[in-house]
């Protein structure tokens, strides 16, 4: 199956493909459609015992008041600014540091490499609950409590997840290429920057996307380390809608939709970057 040009498939296959896609996407998208449609209803409409038909999915009349209400219920722009700040730092930090570390593990032979790699993977195996207190105490004794530092600095020290992922990708790049470059006298750093990186754009973009989404959605970090409402993030604001003492369902759905929309748009347009075909097959 070629992936670069549009597939020239026989009609029947194309039909089958579309049929499969549509059928499978229904369960994927239905809950989300429900979320959006709920956000456009009043509470009475949501909990009335109406029949299930298309009408239930498309509310009429459209109640758009939930959106301004949701926006009013939290300092949206402030949260947005804070969230973007954390996301940008997170992405830059995570991608650069993880790529560098992954190159070390994947392409350089040095004693202790496998042990350290194993150690790194092992760090993912311990549930975070029990290290929460020691980590918290650590940050507190560093004086970082109440600031963004606990949320930003660790991103620059490479995450095991991304390193593991990138290692897998880097390993698929033939060693002959880097060997040839080494013979030419290039330093590892140069090989890394000029050879490996350009060939790994899909993987790097995937990491960037995941990190962005992860930071965007992270609410526990801000909850634990921040005390000033002026520093809070969108994820935190969303969580405030969900609680025993007064969550409002329609507004929650509106808030969740607002919260998710930027990511959807980001993903849709960024697709090309990491699903871009590697046309320079000769270079491989």
């Amino acid at each position: 199956m070629t992936s670069d040009q549009e597939a020239k498939l026989p009609r029947l296959t194309k039909f089958a493909v579309y049929a499969a896609l549509i059928m499978l996407s229904i369960p994927a998208i239905l809950p989300l459609l429900w979320m959006v449609s709920t956000s456009l209803k009043t509470n009475a409409q949501i909990f009335g015992n109406g029949d299930l038909n298309l009408k239930a999915l498309i509310p009429s009349p459209l109640e758009t008041s939930n959106y301004p209400a949701a926006l009013q219920n939290m300092p949206f722009l402030v949260y947005l600014r804070n969230t973007l700040l954390l996301c940008i730092f997170g992405v830059v930090g995570a991608v650069t540091s993880s790529a560098v570390v992954a190159y070390g593990f994947a392409k350089i032979e040095f004693p202790g490499r496998n042990t350290l790699f194993g150690l790194m993977i092992a760090t993912m195996a311990l549930p975070g609950q029990v290290t929460m207190i020691p980590i918290f105490s650590l940050f507190r004794s560093l004086g970082w409590y109440g600031s963004y530092l606990p949320l930003i600095v660790p991103a620059f020290t490479a995450s095991a997840y991304y390193v593991f992922l990138l290692t897998q990708f880097f390993k698929t790049i033939p060693t002959e290429m880097s060997e040839a470059a080494r013979v030419d006298g290039a330093t590892e750093w140069r090989i890394f920057l000029q050879l490996i990186i350009p060939l790994s754009r899909p993987a790097l973009a995937t990491c960037a996307l995941f990190q962005f989404i992860g930071t965007w959605n992270d609410f526990l970090g801000p909850l634990l380390y921040l005390n000033d409402p002026a520093k809070y993030t969108l994820a935190y604001g969303l969580q405030q809608f969900v609680s025993h003492y007064g969550g409002f369902f329609a507004q929650l759905m509106a808030a969740a939709t607002i919260f998710t929309l930027p990511i959807i748009i980001l993903f849709f347009f960024a697709q090309r970057t990491f699903i871009q075909g590697i046309s320079t097959t000769g270079g491989k």
Binding site: G146, F219, L223, L224, Q239, S243
Partner: peptide
Amino acid sequence: AVSVPSGGSDAKFILGVIGGD
């Protein structure tokens, strides 16, 4: 006043107390 969302408030409150601040 600061309102803390319920999910994770256990942890936050307790950490707040033992954290010394």
